[in-house]
Design a protein around this nucleic acid. Structure first.
Length: 355
DNA sequence: AATTCGTGGCG
DNA sequence: TCGCCAAGAAT
């Protein structure tokens, strides 16, 4: 059970949130929520998926575009796969988009288009893990559930001066966070802890002077807040290389292919090319996707993914009309927007397109 | 349990 | 230039 100290802490945080909540497009602020306005579970779900490992600034335009184009989960469930992947292009972690569509179709087909107001049921849905299930349950339905994201981990590590490095510390931090979760206003509480982490208890230069939990903060007392949370060191990123083929037909059509559903950039549009292998290995010898006079660009496309750097050699060709590709398909100019490409492929396009 | 999955901004 | 970081999930 929760003790009086915990209730006081949550109460002080909610008081702070009432005056300092960030205004976000998907959020029902504390005043409106108190007046009885309920969040749209679809908006909460969509925003939470987009916000996974992604900044608020990056998400905003995508959230606006998705909700304008697909106002309800039923609309999204009825969308074409390629349209959703293209709309997600640039946001990264493309498995989220594939699972987003799967989830929308499960909700539409098996739940009557209504998100289940149940933590365990939410957890069964594609793309919804422990954090997102708790976030939807609390924020959309005011079910007491504990969110543990990067913000909450940092806040809890400092509040309790926890020096166990992440990710090993997660169960400990979850325990601390759960003890603070109130029965009243659990949705506002969840958003309040995350706002506190995002605006006050920041990774660098935390604004402790403005923190409603300063007097309770063990790391502040110990002077260790700047070095928390501890993290286990990460591995260095290796560099890989490969070749991509950018073919333009005389009518302006580009030769593109949809990448396999699984793996890096899965389900996204891209330029045909080789595998990407470690820089210490020779360039793989994949046949070009179509017979042509290929020339190699002087500049390679460089891009960094989560766990490796990539140097992509670009080869271009101009093709006549009557030649069939062995891989991919031609996309006519009126059907092609570089904004539909993941960032690496868009970089390659920017280097290879005619000037 | 450890890896695999993007991207852009910032110091 | 480079590592860190952002409302994690799936395998």
């Amino acid at each position: 059970m929760r003790d009086n100290g915990a209730r006081t802490l949550s109460g002080e945080l909610l008081d702070w949130y009432d005056h300092n909540a960030r205004a976000l497009p998907w959020r029902v602020g504390p005043a409106a929520r108190a007046a009885g306005v309920r969040p749209d579970p679809y908006a909460v779900w969509l925003s939470e998926i987009m916000l996974q490992q992604t900044t608020v600034v990056a998400v905003k335009p995508y959230f606006e575009a998705f909700t304008r184009r697909w106002p309800t989960v039923a609309d999204l469930a009825a969308a074409e796969d390629a349209d959703v992947m293209a709309a997600w292009a640039g946001l990264g972690y493309y498995a989220r988009a594939r699972n987003l569509l799967k989830c929308a179709r499960v909700v539409a087909a098996e739940h009557g288009g209504i998100f289940p107001a149940d933590h365990a049921e939410l957890l069964k849905l594609p793309g919804i893990g422990p954090y997102t299930a708790a976030a939807i349950a609390s924020i959309a339905f005011d079910i007491p559930a504990t969110v543990l994201d990067g913000n909450v981990e940092r806040v809890m590590a400092r509040l309790h001066d926890e020096h166990t490095p992440l990710p090993a510390a997660k169960p400990i931090l979850m325990d601390h966070a759960a003890r603070l979760t109130p029965d009243e206003r659990p949705g506002d509480h969840a958003q309040a802890v995350m706002d506190l982490g995002a605006t006050i208890c920041t990774p660098k230069n935390p604004a402790c002077g403005l923190c409603p939990w300063r007097t309770a903060c063990a790391a502040w007392e110990a002077g260790t807040h700047r070095e928390l949370p501890k993290k286990t060191p990460k591995k260095a990123k290796p560099t890989r290389h490969g070749v991509a083929y950018l073919a333009r037909r005389v009518d302006g059509a580009w030769l593109l292919e949809t990448r396999p559903e699984s793996g890096l950039l899965g389900g996204m549009l891209g330029w045909p090319g080789t595998e990407w292998v470690d820089l210490t290995a020779p360039l793989p010898g994949t046949e070009p996707p179509i017979r042509a006079e290929w020339r190699t660009l002087p500049e390679e496309a460089r891009h960094t993914f989560t766990h490796f750097h990539l140097r992509l050699t670009l080869r271009t060709a101009l093709l006549p009309m009557d030649r069939e590709p062995e891989r991919g398909a031609f996309v006519l100019p009126q059907d092609f927007s570089p904004a539909d490409l993941p960032t690496l492929m868009r970089k390659a396009f920017d280097l290879a397109r005619p000037r």
